[in-house]
Write a protein that binds this DNA or RNA. Sequence first.
DNA 1: GATGAATGAGAATTCATTCAT
DNA 2: CATGAATGAATTCTCATTCAT
Lengths: 202, 202, 202, 202
Amino acid sequence: MPRPSNTEERRQQIVSGLLRVMSERGYERASVNEIAKAAGLSPGLVHYHFSDKQEILLVLVRQLAARARERVAKRFERLGADDARGRIDAFLDAFLATGADADTSAVAGWVTISAEAIRQPEVRAAYEQVVRADLEQLEALVAVLVGKRKARALAAGLFAAVQGYFVLSASSPGLVPAGSAANTVKHMAAGLLDTSAAREGA
Amino acid sequence: MPRPSNTEERRQQIVSGLLRVMSERGYERASVNEIAKAAGLSPGLVHYHFSDKQEILLVLVRQLAARARERVAKRFERLGADDARGRIDAFLDAFLATGADADTSAVAGWVTISAEAIRQPEVRAAYEQVVRADLEQLEALVAVLVGKRKARALAAGLFAAVQGYFVLSASSPGLVPAGSAANTVKHMAAGLLDTSAAREGA
Amino acid sequence: MPRPSNTEERRQQIVSGLLRVMSERGYERASVNEIAKAAGLSPGLVHYHFSDKQEILLVLVRQLAARARERVAKRFERLGADDARGRIDAFLDAFLATGADADTSAVAGWVTISAEAIRQPEVRAAYEQVVRADLEQLEALVAVLVGKRKARALAAGLFAAVQGYFVLSASSPGLVPAGSAANTVKHMAAGLLDTSAAREGA
Amino acid sequence: MPRPSNTEERRQQIVSGLLRVMSERGYERASVNEIAKAAGLSPGLVHYHFSDKQEILLVLVRQLAARARERVAKRFERLGADDARGRIDAFLDAFLATGADADTSAVAGWVTISAEAIRQPEVRAAYEQVVRADLEQLEALVAVLVGKRKARALAAGLFAAVQGYFVLSASSPGLVPAGSAANTVKHMAAGLLDTSAAREGA
DNA sequence: GATGAATGAGAATTCATTCAT
DNA sequence: CATGAATGAATTCTCATTCAT
């Protein structure tokens, strides 16, 4: 009679431990020992559940992305299926209203991940996959208003603004007026989409 | 007759070495040995010219910022002193026209620095200082058009978009339509500032 | 009614697992986890049936030796009890005809065991015991032809050649002409024993 | 004025340290720390002079082989260039007279290397290269007496006997009559080559 | 100024073994 | 008998920094 498996719970503890330590010390300096300590586990157990440190990071990438998607989905539920403008705002709110201001360590973690994606091919692959999915979702919403031709660039611009707020709020909190991020990006969206839509329509 | 000091040249070589190695391997994995090799110098000499690795990074932060300021200033020369809109576009072009598309390693280096700024207090201080200076410059330009009250938030939004393009182009090149960054942010600026200015003026 | 013991079967699975893994990775790198996996069992069970990793190795030593003895005995059955020359050839064939050419992993395992015997006293003891038994058997056969005085050294020489073929075929397959081992050692035996016997007889 | 390089001396110390420790504990259990201790150096220095543990082993393989070649060459000096039989005996003496009996740790090291060559591709490559060179040298000598057709197999047989003596003397000293190795293999050679030569000539 | 050898403190990772179930 | 989670020591390797020359 084997002991009931608690692997998923343990893996989750470890992933959370990585996020906690990483947001305080960066990925490289997040030693497996400290991750284990933060998770309340022994160091050896980390490598029992994960083949290496990078694998923990990859799970974290997907987990943070999944959380964001859930926030988006939850906001979408309250909106009509054809309210493209409302959905764009909801998308931006989902990322910035609770992302940049609220969950400091998730934002710090995400920015750290972005930087790691520059050189670690597997991290980059995971990062690109989730970014591509988000971008495509936003692009589809934008396309309703301005047409497919311009949608990709405009969506990228809005998404860049979101990512930029993450960076600035993690690296230089205090420089960005508190609570302004979501509103400002929604204004940007309005400016981009209304004038574009107008011109497009003309 | 003492030999003429080549300290400044050596320091520059080392800083450039750090940028090169860092853009390929990140800051933590940029070992002093590799920095020295990239600089064509011996490892020992690095510590003759810099007290520690972090000091090289701090110089690099200021150097990358100075280059950006120069690009801005050069573009300003061609514009009238009262052409606020032109100056905003010039500012954004200075960062994105040559920044995101051209100098890959500088962009990768800058994104890496942003992430390091999250935890290393001295890096954060240097980073914040240059970001604050840039932001204040942009804010002043924006204030001409929309008034001081809203300028900070709007400038922060535009600057966030710039930083976000850096991140995306470094971590996920290919997801952002090539060459679209500068134009999209200028459109954002137009949307933000024209509607704001209009409402402000009304 | 207790369930019927499958201990022997399990032990055999584990020993075979060790041989398989060891022939691919060596003894030290043959982790208990991999041995268990190769045996289709759980890691914990390995230590239920064996007190430690070395004990598995000791059983393997005796098992490989027993297999060789069986091959020798089987070949002896076809020969007259007084055909000393035939028996020597049969002995050599038993080791080399199927040993060096056929069962790659057994040969690799045996060579690995030889090396482990250099430092692990218990492995050495088991190894020496089986080597001594083989040597004494061969020595007795040789003694019939050349007398006791020279038998030990000549038997050792032939046995050394056998062991050497094992090493070469495991470490550098391709350097030894395929299929030549048994014949060459039988020629060696002929040369050694006939000239010795002649001189002895003279 | 840099400190004069002592790299070669250090590398030699480390290689000797590996041989010493390896002959007592095997390759896997020869920890870098102990190698360093045996070499009288700090652990970090080992990795300054060698990229990894395996590189030390590769140098050792070539060094042990070079020593054997030198012993062969020294013995050849005393012989006429056309004395093929004398040269074969000299070759065998060079390996066995001082090899198996005298330099215990070199023999133990070599046997250990043979076993490592089974799985580590780079070790195998280095091992095969030196074995091939030795074999070809012996084959050329043998070919003078028995013709090219049979030379390879006979040379391999004699070389196998040499390697087998190494294994037995390292793993089971006491089972081989002391001092008998060289003579026995020379008798084997005589038996093989004289009967072969006779038949060849007939 | 310059060199590159040297140090020693971590870092990730592996693994035999134990043990609760 | 059986499972597989858990432990903690050991190991290889990296690296900023120092220092003799």
